[in-house]
Amino acid sequence: MRIGLGLPTAIAGSPAGLTLEWARLAEAGPFASLAVHDRLAFDSLEAVAALAAVAAVTRRIRLASLVLIAPLRGSAIMLAKQARTVATLAGAGRLTLGLGVGPRRDDYEASGVPFEQRGRLLDEQLVDLPPLLGEEVELLIGGSSQPALAHMVRVADGLCHEGGAPRVFHAAADRARIAWSDAGRPGQPRLWGLGYFALGPDSAELGRQALQRYYSFTGGYAMRIAPGLLTSADSIAAYCEGYQEAGCDDLVLFPAVADITQVERLAGALQERWR
């Protein structure tokens, strides 16, 4: 299992220069990928533009959108154009494009796209997208619902899980493998997981608050996700181990605190307890 690092693009109040500094540091560190979340009605950086900038300051590391809210991004042709642009700028088959519908009604309301139509819109985009995308871009579907699994087996290379305890991921991973095999796809689906971390003194509480703000659209989810925040090397190691056992290919740890020291703290924690 490879470990990736989330970019601080969706933490409210993130300082302007932080993202690129973060990316340069990660490129030099033990991380296999750098990933972005996508939100519209929130104090965050636009995901595709951020990836393009990160592509310019890195050479090795994989770049991933986990995940883009596809129905807010117009036609498949526009989506494919953006993805191929980033893939071309990054070179060396570095792009993983995760697509989903996202759970947030406010993002849809902000963009005037009807929330109730999100499934149908994604259906339509995914009919046209695969031939436009080319073979260089790894395509993931976000989520683990029945429609997400159905989309994954039809068009994608794998799945990006929405995050949660390792046993939750494990159950979803089993369903994904079963779906893959049932559909007659050869091999195995690529399985991406994610988690949230905040390391160092005072970071835990700051991180919890940030997560609650980020997930405030649904109180229940925020309440479940916030206690899952990884705040020590031990909890990170246990989380990694659980995901690895479940057959995760890439686990991306997203920061909950927008501070450059988080990158080194995470690298240190991984080195100390994971490998």
Binding site: P130, V153, R154, V155, A156, A183, G184, R185, P186
Partner: peptide, 8 residues
């Protein structure tokens, strides 16, 4: 072939 996805 299905390594490219279904029904392409």
């Amino acid at each position: 072939p299905r390594r490219y996805g279904l029904d392409r």
